[in-house]
């Protein structure tokens, strides 16, 4: 399906570059998900896609629709704000879950439980 909106040359160049850049970064992030060896290394990889990768594609979408409808369209900002707030929450929760599981099973070299015990005491 080779199809694209009819944009002026400058906008087409910017949109094309941003889309390619963003998707390349996202691909690199998931390649890291496959290639890195331990779970704690792998957690870092998808962040590539969720920060700059998403940012580039959202910017491309904003430019594309603003030029097409010749008025500023910025509702993509919502996705950016939403992702900025939620990605850290999911990653922190996931890392804590992994740490908790590793600690209870005594696997890998994860830092000791000193923090948790202190919290449970009070």
């Amino acid at each position: 399906m080779m199809q694209a909106p009819d944009l002026p040359l400058w906008a087409a160049i910017i949109v094309g570059f941003l889309v390619l850049f963003g998707s390349a970064l996202t691909l690199l992030g998931t390649i890291g998900l496959v290639r890195l060896k331990t779970f704690y290394d792998r957690v870092h990889a998808p962040t590539l896609g969720s920060t700059l990768g998403t940012g580039a594609i959202l910017l491309a979408s904003m430019i594309c629709f603003s030029v097409l409808q010749s008025r500023p369209i910025i509702h993509e900002v919502l996705i950016a704000v939403f992702l900025t707030i939620t990605t850290p929450v999911t990653l922190i929760l996931l890392a804590r879950a992994a740490l908790y599981r590793d600690r209870t099973e005594g696997r890998g070299n994860v830092p000791a439980d000193s923090m948790e015990k202190k919290q449970h005491r009070d």
Partner: peptide, 10 residues
């Protein structure tokens, strides 16, 4: 957490 390469855990 948003900067790749560092992750807040606890």
């Amino acid at each position: 957490t948003a900067t790749p390469g560092t992750l807040w855990v606890q």
